[in-house]
Amino acid sequence: MTTNSPDDDRHRRLAAVRPRLVAFALMHLRDAAQAEDAVQEALVAAIEKQDAFAGRSGYETWVFGILKYKILDALRAQKRHGKWQPLEDEDEDDAIDRQFQRNGRWQESARPSSWGEPEATFENERFWQVFDACMIHLPDNLARVFSLRELMGLSTDDICHEVGIKENNCWVMLHRARLRLRACIERGWLEDSTC
């Protein structure tokens, strides 16, 4: 070893990606201290195992992959401590009922509008600020299931297994999470951008 500059480079990249790792962990775990712990463990593992990084995917992607396992471990611990609640009442959700009229049509004030081209949306920093804020406002049980499905990419079958809920309950939660998120994002983002 004559130089350690590749290590330095990786440490710099880890420091740079850390805020995203923390935000990602927080969306699943809904607990700042636990999110920090999971990220810390992932960073330690990444540094210790960096010889195992084969360079097939990006370094950051590889670190995210490690973090996903740490998050699942932490979620299992949460489940053991009884933090996971199934959705008790599958019929009632005021936040969603407010989007629809009695006859099942959209409320005039809640009718979804166009968000434009997805790629342009994803490049808009404001979108991500609003998305993060809306995720934080989501009830814990909805946010966890949504994160596992759409951020972690687990199947609903796997989620049921992890969380110990029925698949139908999972589908109802995902429907609610998506409707709440879309309404929240539309309020926070579109109305803001027209100013």
Binding site: R20, F24, S57, G58, E60, T61, W62, F64, G65, L67, K68, F122, F131, E150, L151, M152, G153
Partner: peptide
Amino acid sequence: VGRHYAPPA
């Protein structure tokens, strides 16, 4: 959104 947040490995 997930693919932009944390690209799948």
